[in-house]
Design a binder for these strands. Sequence first.
DNA 1: GCACGTTGTGGACGCACCGTCCATATGTCA
DNA 2: TGACATATGGACGGTGCGTCCACAACGTGC
Lengths: 202, 202
Amino acid sequence: MEQRTEGTPVRRGRGRRPADEVRADVLTAAGALLLRDGMAAFTIERVAQEAGVSKTTIHKWWSSRGTLALDGYFHAVESTLAFPDTGDIGADLTAQLRAFVRLLTGTPAGPVIAGLVGQAQTDPDLSAALRQRYSGPRRELAVAAMRRAQDRGQLRADADPQTLVDQLWGACYHRLLLPGEPLTEDFADRLVTNLLHGAGTG
Amino acid sequence: MEQRTEGTPVRRGRGRRPADEVRADVLTAAGALLLRDGMAAFTIERVAQEAGVSKTTIHKWWSSRGTLALDGYFHAVESTLAFPDTGDIGADLTAQLRAFVRLLTGTPAGPVIAGLVGQAQTDPDLSAALRQRYSGPRRELAVAAMRRAQDRGQLRADADPQTLVDQLWGACYHRLLLPGEPLTEDFADRLVTNLLHGAGTG
DNA sequence: GCACGTTGTGGACGCACCGTCCATATGTCA
DNA sequence: TGACATATGGACGGTGCGTCCACAACGTGC
């Protein structure tokens, strides 16, 4: 989207320009660059160049390379966050985890998310933004679904939903970030089974 | 640290020097820098400077910033990897996970490991080295312990040990890399309980 | 004991990116 | 219509990366 309207010269004047327009240009270029070349090649200089904007402008609105990348990612993929509630927590968790695995392995989003999480380790602003705009909301949706399951009596009341989230989604991130074992839908299924039914014999 | 041995002039000649000696100097400097200033400040140029060695030498022996950091880390902390086997898989897992959590939260290793995993997302050589020398061996130890527990009848035979590893250690990495919820020994305890006894009511 | 080849080391260089300063062009308001 | 406020772009200094080339020590053979 937001391709300079046909006929409009790429030439960029010097003075003021509608801020929103420039921001949109930057985000579009950032998202495209991120999905195309990955986080490693994602540099402010490059985004500025491809957006036809000066670095100063970018620095004015984004505090770091990471936050710009995150904004660009969100701008590129209108992520839908709905968490279905069919009344069967096992089925719902399995469906969500499978979709998550497909997102990570079957689309460009996998490497991008991995890169963002990686970058967040040395970029405090990105770390905060990621928590606030990505992991936080997603975590809350899952926790809410589990609370409802507890109310329905499908999940032990003494089980901590937050911890369960880490054992389901965290396990997927583990295979994404520290590759070695395959990240598959089968794996997602096993995660839910293990957690609901237990792996111990006692 | 890394002051030339007493009496030896700090002067560095130009020509050849025992390779092992130089390597040791580099690793010592790298480990110290990493633990002191973290991954963000860890740069080849800085390591070279603090080790009294030229960058060329470092580039000759290490393929990337990440692999140098990993080597420096291992050189600094002689990590002991023993996995105790008391015959009670629940107790063993709990003990191991608690120790892991303490390592991540109570020592400088936490941020360092986070930084290494983060850097690995844009450094293929580090990613491979990390799998081969860090996550791989650790994973194998845990899997072996679980296999023994399966033989003893403490773990369901149809549970996949690899998946369980992701649900225990991966959950901890999740809280380390995407902070938000606290990483505590209580959390470690819940991980084991959830997985052994199940969180479902069915 | 000496010269020579081998081997690895260091300084310098070109390149890319970062972050900032200052001049300037435009939008806005009187 | 004119002056001010504001955002923008080009340029600059700084830092780190990766590489090229000259050179110094070590080992070997004469």
